[in-house]
Amino acid sequence: MKYMIMTFGDASAWDTLGLGAEEATWSQEEVAEHFRAMSAFYADLAASGEMVTGFGLADPSHTMTVEIRDGRPVASDGPHAEAKEVLAGFGIIDVASHDRAVELAARFAAIVRSRVELRPVMDDAGREM
């Protein structure tokens, strides 16, 4: 079963690399440790054959909004909201059980020192009823 793990940060987080407001000023050692732990996490997931994909997202200032107005697509910059919570990155895992998904999410939360969200990915298999 596939799950998405999502991490969040406020807009200022990208400037300082910290991912939560109170973590916004990481020391040099902490930054180095963060990157080490992150690549170890990805390496473990790849080695166990549970990693589907994962990416960190670019600075929220790159965000564009695309919508349909009067039947035509309209693209505009933003929102540049000073949102507390902006999606910072996501990973998709394929695991044997829900418990395993929670275990991996917990490990990820410890690395990013911030809460993460875990959601099942919809399956295209279905049973007749």
Partner: peptide, 16 residues
Amino acid sequence: ALLLPEATLAQRISRA
């Protein structure tokens, strides 16, 4: 068939 990247599956098989 399992909607997974090939690398993921290769790793899963070799680990298994």
